[in-house]
Amino acid sequence: MSQERTGIATLKGNPITLVGPELKVGDTAPDFKLNKDLMTEASLSDYAGKVKLISVVPSIDTGVCDAQTRRFNEEAAKLGDNVVVLTISADLPFAQSRWCGAAGIDKVVLLSDYKSNSFGQAYGVQIKELQLDMRSIFVIDANDKIQYVEYLQEMTNHPNYEAALDAVHKLV
C-alpha cells in the first residue's frame, strides 16, 4: 500500500490526500513510465545527461495549468539543449496534443500519467480523491539527483517560477 499524506494540500481550501513519498533535495529521482501518446512511453532514462525541469499540472485545460505550461514553454527556449522541460498531467495524450497544437507549445514535452499514475505515486503528487497529479515542480540534475522541489499547498496557486528557473540556471 502506498503512503498517504494528509493535511498538507487543498483544492479551493478543501483538504486532499496525496499518495506517495515526499521527495526532498538530494534524493535520487524515481524512475517513471509516462505516455507520449497512446502507444509510446517515456521514462526518466530517456532524458539521461540532461537537466530536467518537471512541471506537474492537474489538468492542462484549466487556467493556472495553461498559464504554467505557457510560461515554462517560453522559458524553455532560453535554457539551451542541455535542459528538457517536461509537463506532466493525468490528461489523456489526445487532450495534451490538442492543447499543444492550439496553444502553439513546441518547447515543452507533455507526458501523460493517465495509465498507471506511476509518476504521481513515485513523486508523491497523486491526488487520491481525484486521480490527478498535484501541481508541483521538480528540478533534477544531469545525474538524476533532485536539486529543487516545490509541492504546492493549494492546487489553484501558481508555482514559484523564478525559484524553479534559478535552480535550473545553477545547473547549466
Results as ranks from 00 to 15, higher is better:
D66V: 07
D66E: 14
D66P: 01
A67H: 07
A67T: 07
A67W: 03
Q68A: 03
Q68I: 02
T69L: 13
T69D: 11
T69V: 06
R70Q: 10
R70G: 00
R71E: 07
R71Y: 15
R71M: 11
R71Q: 10
R71P: 01
R71A: 05
R71W: 12
F72V: 14
F72T: 15
F72G: 15
N73K: 12
N73D: 15
N73T: 08
E74G: 07
E74W: 04
E74C: 08
E74F: 03
E74R: 15
E74L: 13
E75R: 09
E75W: 00
A76E: 02
A76N: 04
A76Y: 00
A76H: 03
A76T: 05
A77V: 13
K78N: 14
K78I: 00
L79N: 03
L79P: 01
L79E: 01
L79Y: 02
L79K: 06
L79V: 01
G80M: 04
G80T: 03
D81N: 14
D81H: 04
D81T: 08
N82H: 10
N82Y: 00
N82W: 00
V83R: 05
V83F: 04
V84H: 05
V84R: 09
L86R: 09
L86V: 02
L86C: 03
L86H: 02
L86W: 01
L86M: 08
L86T: 02
T87C: 13
T87S: 13
T87R: 04
T87K: 06
I88H: 11
I88T: 07
S89M: 04
S89H: 07
S89N: 09
S89C: 06
S89K: 09
S89R: 11
A90S: 14
A90E: 05
A90K: 10
A90F: 00
D91H: 07
D91E: 08
D91C: 10
D91A: 10
L92Y: 13
L92R: 09
L92C: 06
L92G: 05
P93G: 10
P93A: 08
F94A: 10
F94T: 12
F94C: 06
F94W: 05
F94S: 10
F94N: 09
F94K: 11
A95F: 00
A95Y: 00
A95N: 08
A95C: 04
A95W: 02
Q96C: 13
Q96A: 10
Q96S: 12
Q96T: 05
S97Y: 04
S97R: 15
S97A: 15
S97M: 12
R98H: 06
R98C: 03
R98Q: 09
R98V: 03
R98S: 08
R98A: 11
R98D: 08
R98G: 04
W99V: 12
W99Q: 09
W99T: 14
W99I: 13
C100A: 15
C100D: 11
C100I: 07
C100S: 15
C100V: 10
G101D: 09
G101M: 08
A102H: 07
A102Q: 14
A102G: 06
A102M: 13
A102W: 01
A103F: 06
A103C: 07
A103N: 10
A103H: 05
A103R: 13
G104R: 02
G104M: 01
I105Y: 00
I105W: 01
D106P: 01
D106F: 00
D106T: 11
K107S: 12
K107Y: 03
K107W: 01
V108E: 04
V108L: 11
V108H: 08
V109G: 09
V109D: 08
V109C: 07
